[in-house]
Nucleic acid binder design. Sequence first.
DNA 1: TATGAAAACTTGCAAGC
DNA 2: GCTTGCAAGTTTTCATA
Lengths: 174, 174
Amino acid sequence: MSGHLDLIDLKIIESMGENGRIRLSELAEVVGLSIPSVSERLDKLQKNGIVKGFTMDVDERQLGFDIQAFVRVRVDSSKHYKSFMEHVMKEDEIMECYSVTGEGSHILRVMTHNTGSLEKFLSRIQSWPGVMSTNTSFVLSQLKKTRKIGADIIRNNLQDRQVLITYDEKKSRK
Amino acid sequence: MSGHLDLIDLKIIESMGENGRIRLSELAEVVGLSIPSVSERLDKLQKNGIVKGFTMDVDERQLGFDIQAFVRVRVDSSKHYKSFMEHVMKEDEIMECYSVTGEGSHILRVMTHNTGSLEKFLSRIQSWPGVMSTNTSFVLSQLKKTRKIGADIIRNNLQDRQVLITYDEKKSRK
DNA sequence: TATGAAAACTTGCAAGC
DNA sequence: GCTTGCAAGTTTTCATA
């Protein structure tokens, strides 16, 4: 489905993870290809859905988001899943939402202005149908946040997978 | 310190949060200013540290990262904080690390290839000095992940803060 | 799938308001 | 701090290997 990723694709992914606004001319130099070739590969990566988009990293504190928190939510998901999701999508303060194993069914990463707005937010989500409990951990500081995904690591991942695919093919040929 | 952010700056931040590779010409049209003006504002936002950088969003599953997890770690931080940090920085599988309140002192967002590599990772971090326990939640699915920070929300945040500053100034003038 | 060359567009810089 | 205009650089498109 995704064709085949070669080392050049992986280098493009690595470089743009570090600098999403890198020029195609510079990228072409890095990977050792002409600009049109790099441009075409990038298009394909986007069409494949491997590249989902480009964004900017900001200092949230300076924008007045003094509170960051992880909120574990226990949702009776069988019945109320759809309405829970709709609420999650509408809340601008929820930056990320994951369905997870362990205590609670979901983890939210929340960004908000102050303890007052967080309190309001928490009481709001506790009123959603199916929400049984929440458990909040404040973020005191962010020690690491990286977007770089090394080409060599991806290659290892995919090589492993390749081995599996080859193995399955052999089996099914019998 | 950060001068003053007006509505145009906030629109730039909002637009680039949605599309980090937007052209300055397009951005200029969106905010209703000339290209050099927008360019200059963007430079200032970067120099202020409000804009930290630009990145690309990828589909990690397609790159062979089949396992995502949140790992809560309890670290005896007083003594071992520095060495813990150094380890965290070196591990490519740790995408994010937060110091938090609540059960455990840190939360890690981890991305790895399969259960085998996760197991190795977990036993590695459990061997770091000061790490007392870990608690892992697998990510089953990502329901929301947004980078957009609405201009109107930021404005509300900062207006609130402005009120506080004004109030403090009045007090100290007495 | 890659390249080179031309056209179209984008950006950076300077001068002036 | 904004704009206009020009020069330099960048990206896109297309024909070709």
